[in-house]
Simulated scan of single mutants.
Amino acid sequence: MNSLLAPDMRIEAMGPAAIERVRRLEALALAMPQHRIETRHVFHAGLYARTVMVPAGVMITGVLIKVPTLLIVQGHAVVHVDEGPHELQGYNVITAAAGRKQALFAVADTHLTMIFATDAGDLESAERQFTDELDKLMTRKEDKACRV
């Protein structure tokens, strides 16, 4: 496993094969018990921040992100990126490109915050700016299934 502990961390856009691997994992995960993961939102100074806490032992998949973001990861997790799995420990601020769909396994309780510049003033508008997979967002599902 590689480590993303370098000072200038970056997650690049993922190729079609890597995104398809996450989609296959996502389909398999839907057959397993789902965990409630609360999403917290903050709008401030032209930025939107979206935070979740993934409990230890839980795997999540994310939607396909269509805007560049900052991703803050606090905890211990293994994240699937284009090159394969990367282990993150501690506090990490990562520049993350558009065109990524990730899977993450929390080794320990892990907080994730995605931040991007926006002119949106409400949650639904902000969500439309960062993804076209709106039906997969926890905030759009009544059962709050396991998704970021």
Rank of each mutant, 00 (worst) to 15 (best):
76 H>M: 02
91 Y>A: 01
96 A>Q: 03
68 P>E: 11
77 A>I: 04
91 Y>K: 01
93 V>G: 01
120 A>M: 04
121 G>Q: 07
70 L>C: 04
99 G>Y: 08
65 I>G: 13
99 G>P: 01
75 G>N: 07
71 L>E: 10
82 D>N: 15
110 T>S: 10
88 L>P: 06
83 E>K: 15
115 I>F: 09
69 T>P: 08
63 V>T: 15
61 T>W: 14
88 L>W: 09
99 G>K: 04
81 V>F: 10
70 L>R: 15
73 V>L: 14
63 V>R: 12
95 T>F: 11
67 V>K: 08
102 Q>T: 10
73 V>T: 12
121 G>W: 01
78 V>M: 13
85 P>N: 06
62 G>N: 07
117 A>W: 00
78 V>Y: 08
116 F>M: 01
108 A>T: 10
85 P>V: 10
120 A>W: 02
103 A>R: 01
81 V>H: 11
110 T>F: 09
72 I>H: 13
83 E>C: 13
99 G>C: 04
86 H>I: 12
81 V>C: 12
71 L>I: 06
114 M>H: 00
96 A>V: 00
119 D>N: 10
107 V>Y: 10
106 A>P: 04
103 A>S: 08
71 L>N: 03
108 A>E: 14
82 D>L: 09
117 A>E: 07
65 I>P: 01
78 V>F: 08
91 Y>L: 08
92 N>A: 02
99 G>D: 03
115 I>K: 04
80 H>G: 14
86 H>A: 14
108 A>W: 07
98 A>S: 12
93 V>T: 11
84 G>R: 11
101 K>I: 06
94 I>M: 05
104 L>M: 15
87 E>M: 09
96 A>H: 00
108 A>K: 15
119 D>R: 14
102 Q>H: 03
65 I>A: 13
77 A>Y: 05
80 H>Y: 15
99 G>F: 05
80 H>M: 15
64 L>K: 12
66 K>F: 07
88 L>Q: 03
113 T>M: 10
89 Q>K: 11
91 Y>N: 01
114 M>Q: 13
92 N>P: 00
107 V>W: 10
96 A>K: 00
103 A>E: 02
87 E>Y: 02
106 A>E: 07
91 Y>P: 00
73 V>R: 11
79 V>M: 14
77 A>R: 05
71 L>R: 07
110 T>A: 09
121 G>F: 08
107 V>P: 02
69 T>C: 15
71 L>A: 09
